[in-house]
Design a protein around this nucleic acid. Structure first.
Lengths: 127, 127, 127, 127
DNA sequence: GTGGTCTAGACCACG
DNA sequence: GTGGTCTAGACCACC
C-alpha cells in the first residue's frame, strides 16, 4: 500500500505522509478505519519505527488521523479539511505555473500539457 | 537584480540559480554579457562567496554561462538548451497536476486556475 | 451516563474518573449508592475492564468511593474531601491564568471571558 | 534562559516550546534575533540534540521561528500569530473554568482567585 | 559551524 | 500490543 522511493530527494516520512493523505482523501482508507500500527508498518517497509511515528504525528497534526493510546491510529474523515488540503495543492500548482511562465514557457504549451495529463489520468482510472 | 528570500525553504544557491536562469532565458541578460563577479555579488547580497560560487558552477554545468579564467563568467545563449530547460519545468508542472488529480482535485478547477494565473501574469507583465 | 471522547488526548481512565467525580460532587450520585459494576460498565462502554478497574481504584484512592469485597463499589460522601477536590481544580485554574498572563493576555480579557463562560454555564444548567 | 522541570509530566520538548513562545511573545527575544543553536542548547541543558530539534521544528511549524540551513534558527515576529496564540490560551482557560463549574466550584470563588492571581502577577512584574 | 533526517535501542503509559 | 518520548550516534546538505 505504501511505496518508498529512495531516489526521491524528499525525506521518507514526508513520502509516507503524502501517500496516506492520498489514500484517505481518495477514500481508499475510510473514516474510523485503523491505520497499520507503527511497528508493523516499520517492519513491513523495513525502516525505523521512529520514521513512521513521525509521519503519523504529522498526519495527526494536520487532522487526517487521530491516535488513541494503547489502541492505535485511526482515520478521521473531515471533508472541510480535505478542501483545505486541495487548496494547498492548488497553491503549489499555481506556483509551478508562474515559474514556467517566468522562464518563457508559452501559455498554449501549459494548456496542452494539462489537457494531456488529464486525459491520461482519467484513461488510467477508467481502465 | 537578485533577491534572496530567507523564508523560502530552498537553499540560497538554488534561489540564485533559478533567478539567473529566468534573467537569461527571458533575455534580460544577453549572450556574451559578463555576469557579476563572485565577490561583488557576495558583498552585494551579504552572503558567503562560496554560495555564489556554487550557484555559478551549477549554471555552468547546465550550460547557461561559461567561465573564462581570470576574466569572469559570461552568459551563453543556447536556444537548444532553453528548450531542455523548459521541458524540465514542464515535467515539474505535469507532476504537480498528477498530485492534484490523485488527491481528488477536479480537472475543471485546474483549467480555471491555470487560466487565472496566466491572465494575471500577462497583466503584470504588460503593465 | 459516561461518555468517552476518543479525540480527547487524555487517557480513557482519566476521563472516567473525572466524569464520576462530577457526578458525585454534583450529587447526581448519592452517598451509599452502588456504582455500576466493573464488568457491566466495561461492556456498556465497550472498553477493557482493566480500564474501568483503574478508574475505580483511582476514585477510591482519592476517597470518592469505597469498595466492599464481593458486593461492589459505593459512593462515599465526604464534604471535606470535596473541598480538597475543589482546591485542586482551583490550583489548575490559577496555573492557567498565569500562563495566559505570561504570554501577554490582558487581565480585562480574562475577566470578560470568565464572565461569559459563567453566564453561559448557568444558562445551560437552568435551561 | 530555559529551565526544564523533570517533575513536570509534560514532555521536555513541549516545555521548551512553551518557554520560547513566552520569550518571543513577551518580546524578550526580538524579531530576527538568532536562537541558540540546536547543539549548543542541547549541551547547555544537557539533553539530547534531537529533543531540541523537535522543539524547534514545532516552533517553526507554529510560525514562531524560521530556520535557515547552515545559518541557524531565527525569531519571526508575527503579531497576527500572537493573537491566535492568545486565543488558544484563552480556550484552555475557558475549558478549565467549565471543569471547575461542573464540579461545583462557586463562581464567586473563581472571580476572587482570578483577582488574586492578577494582582499577584502585576506585583511580581512591577517589582 | 548550522539544521535536517534517519537508525537503533530503550523506557513509559495505556488498554 | 499500542503510541509517545528520549538518548546516542551517524550521515547529509548548506553556508
Amino acid at each position: 500500500m505504501i511505496i518508498i522511493d529512495y531516489n526521491d530527494k524528499r525525506p521518507i516520512y514526508e513520502q509516507i505522509v503524502e501517500r496516506f493523505q492520498t489514500l484517505i482523501v481518495s477514500g481508499v482508507l475510510e473514516a474510523g478505519e485503523k491505520m497499520p500500527s507503527v511497528r508493523t508498518l516499520a517492519v513491513e517497509l523495513s525502516i525505523n519505527p521512529n520514521t513512521i511515528q513521525r509521519a503519523y504525528t504529522e498526519l495527526e497534526r494536520d487532522g487526517f488521523i487521530y491516535a488513541v493510546k494503547g489502541r492505535g491510529n485511526f482515520v478521521k474523515r473531515d471533508t472541510e479539511l480535505f478542501e483545505k488540503q486541495k487548496e494547498r495543492l492548488l497553491a503549489g500548482f499555481e506556483k509551478q505555473i508562474r515559474v514556467c511562465l517566468r522562464q518563457g514557457v508559452k501559455k498554449e504549451m501549459l494548456f496542452q500539457r494539462l489537457q494531456e495529463v488529464v486525459t491520461d489520468f482519467y484513461g488510467e482510472v477508467t481502465a
